Simulated assay, not measured.
Amino acid sequence: MTATGTPRRIGLLGGTFDPVHIGHLRGALEVAEIVGLDEVRLVPNYRPPHRETPNSSAQDRLTMVRLAVQELPLLAVDARELERDKPSYTLDTLESLRAELDEDDQVFLIVGWDAFCGLPSWHRWDELLDHCHILVMQRPDADSDAPEALRDLLAARSVSDPLTLTGGGGQIAFVWQAPLGVSATRIRQFLASGRSVRFLVPDAVLAYINAHGLYRASN
């Protein structure tokens, strides 16, 4: 707990970050400011269960995320999933983090709409809200409905205003965001074809990519 005795409000944003880009950073910052979080921790996945193996190494991805947040006080990096050397289950991460925090500290799991809709396929997904609140980054152009498996959960646990979330967990709120239309897949494609990705990733990340020849067609 902080010196003032005020509970901390910590956001978690997981991903492969292959590479980290402005969409990740902008989304994390918007959520932190809108919901009033003390920090958002970017959590690079080691081996995501629902996605292909990352194109770059765990060390490269971790270094790029650290470079990306070095001048952003609201953002931090949490490397615990890379240190586990096994598939990255969000529930394990939440349980590990909770063991380090004070009882009154709040944890907010930040996910995009697509990831939220896939929640029923996650490892022990029905236990996630025992450890955190869930903040869904929803874009105005998202037009798909939540799957049936989530409808009862949304009816029982969702709140209209994320600022009203209280306690250690158990509720879901939506944070509306302007779409940026940036994806790591597109960035990798640009790099493989020799196109510039400047302004899509932080300059420090681009310098690292260039210095190490990441995502080039020969890789």
Rank of each mutant, 00 (worst) to 15 (best):
A3K: 07
T6D: 13
P7K: 06
I10V: 14
G11F: 01
L12E: 01
G14I: 01
D18F: 02
P19S: 10
H24S: 06
L25K: 09
L25G: 04
A32Q: 03
E33V: 02
E33G: 10
G36I: 08
L37C: 01
R41H: 13
L42K: 02
V43S: 00
P44S: 10
P48N: 02
P49D: 03
H50L: 15
R51E: 14
R51N: 10
E52G: 13
T53F: 05
S56F: 08
S57E: 10
Q59H: 12
L62M: 13
T63S: 13
M64I: 08
L67S: 06
A68Y: 08
V69G: 07
Q70M: 13
L72N: 10
L75Q: 13
V77W: 02
V77C: 06
D78L: 08
A79E: 15
E83S: 10
D85R: 15
K86S: 10
S88I: 03
L94K: 05
A99E: 13
L101V: 00
D102A: 15
D104E: 15
Q106H: 02
V107E: 01
L109Y: 13
V111R: 11
W113L: 10
W113N: 08
A115R: 10
C117P: 02
C117K: 14
C117S: 10
W122L: 11
W122Y: 12
W125V: 05
L128Q: 02
L128D: 04
I134A: 00
V136H: 05
M137D: 07
M137W: 08
D141Q: 12
S144C: 09
D145T: 12
P147G: 00
E148L: 13
E148S: 09
A149W: 05
L153F: 00
A155M: 06
A156V: 09
A156T: 12
S158T: 11
S160Q: 13
D161H: 01
L163W: 00
T164E: 15
T164N: 11
G167C: 05
G170H: 03
I172N: 00
F174I: 04
G181D: 01
I187R: 01
F190H: 15
L191F: 07
L191Q: 09
G194K: 07
R195N: 14
R195F: 12
S196C: 07
V197N: 02
R198I: 05
R198H: 14
F199D: 13
P202Q: 09
D203W: 01
I209F: 07
L214I: 11
Y215T: 05
Y215W: 08
R216Q: 15
S218F: 08
